[in-house]
Structure formats: structure tokens, C-alpha cells
């Protein structure tokens, strides 16, 4: 039977995305197709150098129709907004659906760490969370994906064959039975068509 590919986003409350090496281009492609009435907030951890300036925010704001911003501590999470973890800070979600930052030690040699975001978001959103793991050259995010799955959330990995750096999505796939393994192109199709079908 052919797998139905359209996700009913209205069943969810939040999307988290983890990405490392090769992230800039992948996210640009992914975000370029999101419609402006997209119903969920998107929280992103992208590994980057701690002295990275905010060029990447400016860049995504130019290429994406949704507002893109750096996450601020205690900020209320709003639908249809894309938040990035600031360089050198972990990004977490609080129970009251606000954002939190920390400078706790690195996890998987990373700050921000994908696992830290995914685990805290899974605690809050449980089955209403979509976790997406994209290109990268390390295994950060795999444990986070496992916890999202454990709490009933929906998990998507970029197809390693499609990823510029396959290690990160592959690590998640090795650890967890993913709900979807998709190419970037297939993912963009889901985002574009979010309101045109009504079932998973």
C-alpha cells in the first residue's frame, strides 16, 4: 500500500528541527516553501560556531515568508514563527510554552545541543510534537528523537542518501523506528500542502 504522505499539522502544536553540517542550505530549501498561514511554531537547533553573528537569521528572513528570529529567554512561543537557538546557548521549552536558554555544559560536544531541545520539547508537547532531524556529521539529536518517539510524538529523518552529511539522520534511524524518512523535496511537499488534505 502506498504510504500516505500528507501530515495533518492541526493535530500538532510544535515542530522541532535539528541540523548540523550542511544546515544552511537544507533549511533554506525547506523554509522556502512554507506557506504564510503555516499553523505551528518551528524551533531550530543548528550547530554553529559560538561567535557566529546573526547573518543566518537575516538570510532566512529574506528567503522564508514566516518570521525568523533568534530565540529569547522567557519568550512566548507563537505559531507561524521560526525560532533559532542562539549560538553558544542551549534552547529549551518550558511547561508554559515559553522559551528558555542555558549555558550548561555542552551535550554531544555541542551547545546548542539538539538533544537538549528535543527532550525538553517532548516533555511539554508529548504526542503533539513533530521532530525532524536533518543533515549533520555527528549523532546529536538521535537520543532526542528517541524521547520524542517515546512520548508519542511524530519523527521524521532526512533520507541519508539525500543528506549532504548522512551521519546525523542515520544515527537517529539506527536508534529509532522513524515515522517518516524523507528527502528534503518530499518534506517541502508536506509543508506546502499542509492544509489541503486532512488525514495522516
Amino acid at each position: 500500500m502506498k504510504q500516505k504522505s500528507i501530515l495533518d499539522f492541526t493535530k500538532f502544536k510544535c515542530i522541532v528541527i535539528g541540523v548540523s553540517a550542511g544546515g544552511m542550505e537544507s533549511l533554506t530549501r525547506l523554509f522556502a516553501h512554507i506557506p504564510k498561514d503555516f499553523p505551528l511554531p518551528i524551533l531550530v537547533v543548528q550547530h554553529m560556531h559560538k561567535l557566529q553573528n546573526d547573518y543566518f537569521i537575516t538570510h532566512h528572513n529574506c528567503t522564508c515568508i514566516l518570521p525568523v528570529k533568534e530565540a529569547e529567554e522567557k519568550e512566548k512561543i507563537r505559531s507561524g514563527t521560526i525560532y533559532f537557538a542562539p549560538p553558544d546557548y542551549h534552547l529549551l521549552v518550558e511547561e508554559d510554552e515559553t522559551l528558555a536558554l542555558s549555558v550548561d555544559e555542552k551535550v554531544n560536544y555541542s551547545r546548542p545541543s539538539i538533544d537538549v531541545l528535543f527532550e525538553s520539547a517532548a516533555d511539554v508537547y508529548k504526542e503533539k510534537l513533530i521532530g525532524i532531524i536533518l543533515t549533520g556529521a555527528n549523532n546529536d539529536g538521535a537520543e532526542g528523537i528517541r524521547i520524542i518517539k517515546q512520548k508519542g510524538g511524530f519523527t521524521i529523518a532526512q533520507n541519508p542518501k539525500d543528506a549532504e552529511f548522512p551521519v546525523m539522520p542515520q544515527s537517529a534511524i539506527d536508534l529509532v523506528e522513524m515515522d517518516r524518512i524523507l528527502s528534503l523535496k518530499e518534506m517541502t511537499t508536506e509543508f506546502i500542502r499542509w492544509d489541503q488534505e486532512d488525514e495522516i
Binding site: L92, D104, S120
Partner: peptide
């Protein structure tokens, strides 16, 4: 304390 971090710790 903010809960998410303290929980992690």
C-alpha cells in the same frame, strides 16, 4: 528556578 534546566540537571 526555571524548570526545564533544573529538570535536566
Amino acid at each position: 528556578y526555571a524548570r526545564a534546566s533544573i529538570k535536566r540537571r
